[in-house]
Nucleic acid binder design. Structure first.
Lengths: 148, 148
DNA sequence: CTAGATGCAAACAGTTTGCGTCACT
DNA sequence: AGTGACGCAAACTGTTTGCATCTAG
């Protein structure tokens, strides 16, 4: 459970100041159903701290993502990317440099549903993204301090 | 193989005018390795048609995506979306209304690699997005003409 | 001939940044 | 007391739109 006290702990462990805005933003994210956007979070957080600014929301979401306190739904590569490979395949994505490499569909075992999907949902295709750090980025990071 | 002649056919089948710019953009996408952005495509297409505009590139990429002549690498939901569900899970994404629903990890069989990943690639997590049309959008579309 | 495509510039949406002030540790 | 966070406005990036002109069918 998220008490003010353990929010402070979460922050301190990452050397982040436990400010009021930060706590409200974090609580807001946790309380919103689904997959809120920064704007959603801002709208809701304002109800608790009317003076909060959208920039603060953005800065803190970034901070939370970077520190691993939150995750983003799917990596956004600054701009739209067009797929020219017509074969079914998956993607290897480097979360650091955002490079996308193709992995042939046969590189992964078959996907099988074990559970019913919501009634009426028509599946068009299944996109599998293997997120990680590519060799180049891994070596760059090698000697950087790792923090909890 | 993509000859000017069968590019015309591709277009005509979808009731699109086979303009010079359109052909150059399409050929450019097909000739570029990896997953080009609109900017990448623009830069390269200018070499063949210096007067082409970025807006034309965008308009045509959209046209190609809508008509199914091209696909985009991963759906972009206009803005960043924050994941508050800490459990591992997959996503059901409606390509029409962009709604994201969670599907518990156990809803899909396990994923197993059959092929080696590139040397040194450190997998952090695997994101599975099941793309399709949700029931609500499906019924809206029900009576719209389908075109090849 | 006419619908639709192009090219330009201006508008937009989402996000980031610079900077003076303020608050947590 | 000092480092880092806040809030504001301005800057930026990626993308879309309005409109006059041009072109494929």
């Amino acid at each position: 459970m998220l008490t003010p006290a353990n929010f402070r702990t979460l922050c301190h462990r990452r050397q982040l100041a436990a400010t009021h805005q930060r706590q409200v933003i974090y609580e807001t994210v946790m309380s919103l159903p689904g997959h809120p956007s920064p704007e959603d979070i801002y709208d809701r957080a304002r109800k608790k701290v009317p003076s909060i600014s959208l920039a603060t929301v953005y800065k803190n979401i970034r901070t939370f993502l970077d520190s691993g306190m939150l995750r983003e739904v799917s990596l956004h590569h600054g701009s739209l990317r067009v797929e020219s490979n017509p074969q079914p395949h998956h993607h290897l994505v480097c979360v650091s440099c955002k490079t996308i490499m193709d992995l042939d569909e046969s590189g992964l075992g078959p996907l099988r549903f074990r559970r019913k999907l919501p009634r009426g949902f028509q599946v068009k295709r299944i996109a599998v993204d293997i997120l990680g750090i590519c060799a180049t980025c891994a070596s760059k990071r090698a000697r950087k301090s790792r923090k909890l």
